[in-house]
Each structure stands twice: as structure tokens, then as C-alpha cells.
């Protein structure tokens, strides 16, 4: 089965039993680069994101995850730019640099002993046992049934305990009044926010912005589906999770770290 993704506007026109057909996590397996207008190939038997729609509740049968291949020569800043554009970030006018929101950042790591260095993108790791969800007093910090960790902006009281609890420094606090937010990311002063795996795009059958911009270096897919490309790649090549010692079981996996 082949699906042609032309552009954002015709996504909903792709039909199969009135569902959209997008394949996630298949890029590396197929050896192709994700970009508008590129043909993607679905692995036989794998569930695709198109099997889920906005009208359905997130299902616990699914666990969305990512696999970041840090060995690929990719400009990770493109992922940062795509994220900033998708969520309307970097629009603070008063905040100092250390007060500005970053959903995804490029971290440079160097082994002092050997001199080996590398870079990798770090965002919310969408932990199975998320400390931010545990500590949130109001339940604003929550994990969806499909494993995506989010902040309910209507419920967040801005206590910032989740930021204290997150071992990945993945969360930011909105330090000022913001205007011109994007429609899908209604950011507001006094609330905590972080990468939501582009839940708005996922629910619309699109890939997260950083995945799309990663030139195939970030694979997105269902970790619960053994047939999905991400699961197959993980089974074949293995992976590491950042601070795996904390046993939080992040949904974001890395190769090459």
C-alpha cells in the first residue's frame, strides 16, 4: 500500500475507509527521507497513525515513542527551528535567555576522559513513570493513555513542582504575557509547558514537527506494536534512554549515545 503525502491540506483527502493513512516510523526502514511529496511505504501488518482519529479517545493499546539516531549527520537545529515554528516559541520580548521556553534543545556531550563528543536533541522524554505527573498537585501534568505527557493549561496553577521533578530539564515556565500564539499551542503567562510530541499533529495524522525536520534521524511510531518500524529497529539495534538508571522508562530512545 502506498500513500502519497503532498501537503498538509490534502491529508484529509487520503482515504481508506474514510481514515487517513500515514505511516510513522517507517522512514528508516524504507530508507527514505520524510519530506512533503515523498512516498512512504508501510510495513505489512503495522498499525499506522491513520488508524486513530480525533473523534476517538487516545488508546492505551498504543504508546507513541521516538527513536533518535545520533550517529546521523543531521543539523539538529533544524528540529529546534521546526518545533519553534510549530508551537510559536521564541516570541518572548522581556524574558532573559534563561527564562525563555525551549521544548527541544541540542545538547553537546563530551567525554572528558576520551575526548569523544556528540550532539543530540533533548525534549520531554514522555516517561512511562513520569515524575512531573506524580508531583503535580492538580493533575494538570498528565499522561495520555497513548503515553504522551502533556500539561493541561487550564488546570496548571504555575507551582513549578513538575519542573523541580523533571530530571531532563525538559520543562519551561512562561515568564511573561504572550501574544500571537499559534492556534494549536495556546501558551500563556504563569503556566508550565513542554514538548507535547506535537499531539495536535498526531491527532490529525501528521508527524511531530521535529521528526519531519530530522531528515530521517528521528523515527516516530508505536512502541507497543511489535510490527511498527520503531519497534523493529529497537529490537534489531537496541537503544539507550537518557538516565535509564532512574527507571522512568522514557518513550524517547536514542542510538549512538
Amino acid at each position: 500500500m502506498t500513500i502519497n503525502i503532498d501537503d498538509k491540506n490534502n491529508e484529509n483527502q487520503v482515504e481508506e475507509s474514510s481514515r487517513r493513512n500515514f505511516i510513522f516510523g517507517s522512514v528508516a526502514a524504507a530508507g527514505l527521507t520524510i519530506a512533503p511529496g515523498v512516498m512512504l511505504y508501510q510495513t505489512a501488518g503495522a498499525r499506522s497513525l491513520s488508524d486513530f482519529s480525533l473523534s476517538e479517545k487516545a488508546s492505551s493499546n498504543v504508546r507513541w515513542g521516538m527513536l533518535v539516531d545520533t550517529t546521523k549527520q543531521v543539523d539538529w537545529n533544524k528540529c529546534v527551528e521546526a518545533c519553534n515554528k510549530e508551537h510559536g516559541l521564541n516570541n518572548e520580548t522581556h524574558s532573559r535567555d534563561d527564562q525563555k521556553t525551549q521544548y527541544i534543545r541540542v545538547v553537546n556531550v563530551k567525554n572528558k576522559g576520551t575526548g569523544y563528543s556528540m550532539s543530540l536533541p533533548v525534549m520531554c522524554q514522555h516517561c512511562e513513570n513520569a515524575p512531573c505527573v506524580d508531583v503535580c498537585p492538580t493533575g494538570a501534568s498528565m499522561k495520555r493513555a497513548d503515553g504522551i505527557v502533556l500539561v493541561d493549561r487550564h488546570r496548571c496553577i504555575g507551582c513549578r513542582y513538575c519542573m523541580m521533578a523533571c530530571p531532563y530539564k525538559a520543562r519551561s515556565f512562561v515568564h511573561e504575557v504572550l501574544t500571537d500564539q499559534t492556534e494549536n499551542t495556546p501558551r500563556g503567562k504563569g503556566c508550565v509547558e513542554s514538548c507535547n510530541m506535537c499531539v495536535n499533529r498526531i491527532d490529525n495524522g501528521q508527524l511531530p514537527a521535529c521528526v519531519e525536520a530530522s531528515e530521517g534521524a528521528i523515527i516516530f511510531g508505536d512502541l507497543n506494536d511489535p510490527q511498527s518500524d520503531i519497534s523493529q529497529l529497537l529490537a534489531k539495534h537496541g537503544s539507550r534512554q537518557i538516565r535509564a538508571d532512574l527507571k522512568l522508562n522514557p518513550g524517547v530512545h536514542y542510538q549512538g549515545i
Binding site: D97, D98, N108
Partner: peptide, 9 residues
């Protein structure tokens, strides 16, 4: 490890 980033890691 030694780490650095735009987010003050």
C-alpha cells in the same frame, strides 16, 4: 560527561 546547550545545561 561535560554537557552544554542553549538551555544552560
Amino acid at each position: 560527561m561535560e554537557v552544554s546547550s542553549s538551555f544552560y545545561d
